[in-house]
């Protein structure tokens, strides 16, 4: 078990190191001739107007919330799915109830109109 995590840890390190190394090598190879015009923000090609910060609408937050709830739900169901072959029929029905309770939440959000992208 620990060996597997050791491999994953090493793999993650290597996966981070390879692109980082490539970027550093390219940084050494590449020419460096900055000037103020070149270094100005490109944005959309025109001169930049205003601050780079935009206030986002609440819609993003709502989608994030619904996503979070369903993510937690699915994660709680994964142990059940692993044990699926061993659980009796009422165990499956319990999971069905679990999902249905949350599905009613989805219906509420839908009726409320919070799923519309406006």
């Amino acid at each position: 078990m620990l060996h597997e995590w050791l491999y994953l840890g090493i793999f993650l390190t290597v996966a981070l190191a390879i692109p980082a190394a490539a970027l550093i090598i390219a940084g050494i190879l590449a020419p460096k001739k900055p000037n103020p015009i070149k270094n100005s923000t490109y944005e959309c090609g025109m001169e930049t107007v205003g601050v780079s910060w935009v206030q986002f609408k609440v819609q993003y937050y709502i989608y994030g919330l619904v996503f979070l709830v369903f993510d937690v739900e699915a994660v709680l169901l994964y142990p059940w799915a692993v044990a699926y072959n061993k659980v009796p029929l009422y165990g499956v029905l319990e999971a069905v109830l679990f999902v249905l309770i949350l599905a009613s939440g989805l219906i509420y959000v839908w009726r409320k109109g919070a799923l519309e992208w406006v």
């Binding site: 090598i25 390219a26 940084g27 190879l29 590449a30 020419p31 460096k32 001739k33 900055p34 103020p36 070149k38 270094n39 100005s40 923000t41 490109y42 780079s52």
Partner: peptide, 12 residues
């Protein structure tokens, strides 16, 4: 080509 391209780091 891309390996020898300059990195442009925009201001800010």
């Amino acid at each position: 080509k891309i390996f020898t391209k300059e990195y442009i780091t925009p201001a800010g």
